[in-house]
């Protein structure tokens, strides 16, 4: 299967995917067993993303495969490159940084890692810190609240302008929320949860309200009008190749969801044959919006 290009429609619609990818890549580095928890059969999509990031040439392709086979050493090389070229958001950088700190600690505990590895890690850590500092400087310069608001308007404008039109309302809802979660809106929300719970709650309520407005428009219902689940879940994807890409992308994006605590996200992204029992078969726009916001923003 061809690599998933970063300029691909999938990424254009789901800006958060590369960010998630870099974080997952970092989290996949298993220091103790000296490998990456990535190269499993069912992670084909991830390999395709990775190939997409690394360019088309066969030489590069081989290089990647070679480095990944090299275990932690090779992975760190790639992580450094990905963190530099792919990760754009504060959240992704913070998450990668957290992981790097853990890896640094583990590497010290394990004798067989070379001094070079530690140096590479140190360099990466410095790089990440400087990026994070830079971002937080920027954040201080422009009001973070302002930035969050800009992002919020941006993602809803994107939805409103029909950029997500071949998706079902619930998928549009999901993609929009993930974008916000990974972006400035999510940053603000997370910082508010630490400082001022009520403000964070208000932010999420406002977010749910925006979603309700958009969903009621999509389905031509009122906020509380209960309709069959299919009103929210019916897709409009026609091309098969696109469909496969999308399905794989969604599968990957929502791989954290479990049927019981996250019935809506699980259903939207994993498309199970049997629907989770906690997923209502009849629901209103309000119900969908509230559940989606809570599943995505209150995940652990």
């Amino acid at each position: 299967m061809p690599p998933v290009e970063i300029k691909n429609d999938v990424f254009r619609a789901m800006n958060f995917l590369p960010e998630k990818f870099v974080v997952d890549f970092a989290n996949g580095i298993d220091v103790a067993r000296d490998h990456i928890r990535f190269q499993r059969e069912n992670d084909k999509f991830l390999m395709r993303i990775l190939n997409g990031f690394s360019g088309k040439s066969a030489r590069r392709q081989n290089e990647i495969n070679q480095s990944l086979a090299d275990g932690v050493e090779g992975a760190l090389k790639w992580l450094t490159e990905l963190a530099h070229s792919v990760a754009k958001t504060n959240y992704a950088l913070v998450k990668v940084n957290e992981r790097v700190a853990v890896i640094q600690k583990n590497v010290i505990d394990l004798a067989h890692y070379s001094a070079e590895t530690r140096q590479k890690l140190e360099a990466l850590s410095v790089q990440l810190h400087s990026r994070i500092d830079q971002l937080s400087h920027e954040i201080n310069r422009i009001d973070i609240t302002q930035k969050a608001k800009i992002q919020l308007d941006h993602v809803f404008d994107k939805w409103g302008a029909g950029r997500l039109n071949h998706f079902s309302p619930i998928t549009k809802c999901y993609i929009t929320l993930e974008e916000l979660y990974w972006g400035n809106f999510g940053d603000l929300c997370r910082s508010q949860i630490e400082n001022n719970q009520t403000l964070a709650q208000t932010m999420l309520e406002n977010l749910a309200n925006r979603l309700i407005q958009q969903l009621t428009k999509e389905a031509d219902t009122t906020a509380q009008q209960r309709v069959g689940l299919s009103t929210w879940t019916n897709q409009h994807i026609t091309s098969e190749q696109i469909a496969t890409d999308w399905i794989e992308a969604l599968n990957y994006a929502g791989d954290w969801a479990e049927p019981d605590p996250h019935p809506f996200v699980f259903t939207t992204t994993q498309m199970p044959n049997q629907l989770p029992v906690f997923l209502p078969r009849i629901c209103s726009a309000e119900r969908v919006a509230e559940a989606m916001v809570s599943e995505i923003f209150e995940r652990n």
Binding site: R226, G228, L275, V277, F278, L279, P280, R281, I282
Partner: peptide, 23 residues
């Protein structure tokens, strides 16, 4: 809710029965 949606209401009732029983 119209009559043709009774089947849907039934499904939702069955779904809730399952989830409450499991809880």
């Amino acid at each position: 809710m119209h009559e043709h949606n009774i089947e849907l209401l039934k499904k939702e009732a069955q779904r809730l029965v399952k989830s409450e029983a499991s809880l």
